[in-house]
């Protein structure tokens, strides 16, 4: 095993362990903090596999924004310190769905690649230049479609949160 293998395995184990803690812990905010660890370890895996840009995007978007928004929302509503024993968490369906999806994906990936080996030295590093070239040549259409999707989501968020047109705003 090379250093890369060891690092990928170690970071993967950290990520998996933290992810399991996310769904098993009884403390809501700690679940969010474990999610930070899981996503951070995943960024580490990307970094080891030379996908630099993806790794830092992962940190910037998921750790720095998405998880923070989730923590923010949880703390605004109800975030007791200590255990919450009234969490509504159906275990059996969750295990079936989560485990089934995970195992299925793992089976598909393992079957697709079998024992094929790709040396890291032959791979072009995933830096900004390489990714930009790909996105704006071969993947231009999906990229644009995705941006339309995001725009629609933004407009939807504004439409839901703003008061009805013509309705007078209550002065507080």
């Amino acid at each position: 095993m090379t250093v890369t293998d060891v690092l990928v395995c170690a970071l993967g184990a950290v990520s998996l362990g933290a992810a399991i803690r996310v769904v098993t812990t009884n403390q809501i905010v700690r679940a969010g903090l474990w999610l930070v660890v899981a996503l951070g370890a995943l960024a580490g895996v990307y970094l080891v596999l030379t996908a630099e840009l993806l790794a830092w995007v992962q940190v910037l978007i998921y750790v720095g924004a998405v998880v923070v928004l989730m923590l923010f929302a949880v703390m605004l509503t109800r975030a007791p310190i200590g255990r919450s024993d009234d969490l509504d968490r159906p275990r059996l369906p969750a295990i079936l769905v989560g485990g089934g999806a995970g195992l299925g994906l793992a089976a598909v990936l393992a079957d697709a690649y079998r024992w094929s080996y790709i040396g890291l030295s032959g791979v072009e590093p995933g830096n900004a230049e390489a990714l930009g070239r790909e996105v704006f040549t071969g993947w231009a259409l999906p990229f644009e479609v995705l941006s339309v999707l995001l725009l629609a989501a933004l407009v939807g968020a504004i439409a839901i949160s703003r008061p009805e047109v013509g309705e007078r705003r209550e002065e507080s």
């Binding site: 830092w56 995007v57 940190v59 750790v63 998880v67 923070v68």
Partner: peptide, 16 residues
């Protein structure tokens, strides 16, 4: 190669 991106990403972690 992407020092700028790294800095922006890690400075955002401070919120946590």
């Amino acid at each position: 190669d992407m020092g700028l991106f790294l800095v922006l990403a890690v400075v955002g972690v401070g919120i946590v």
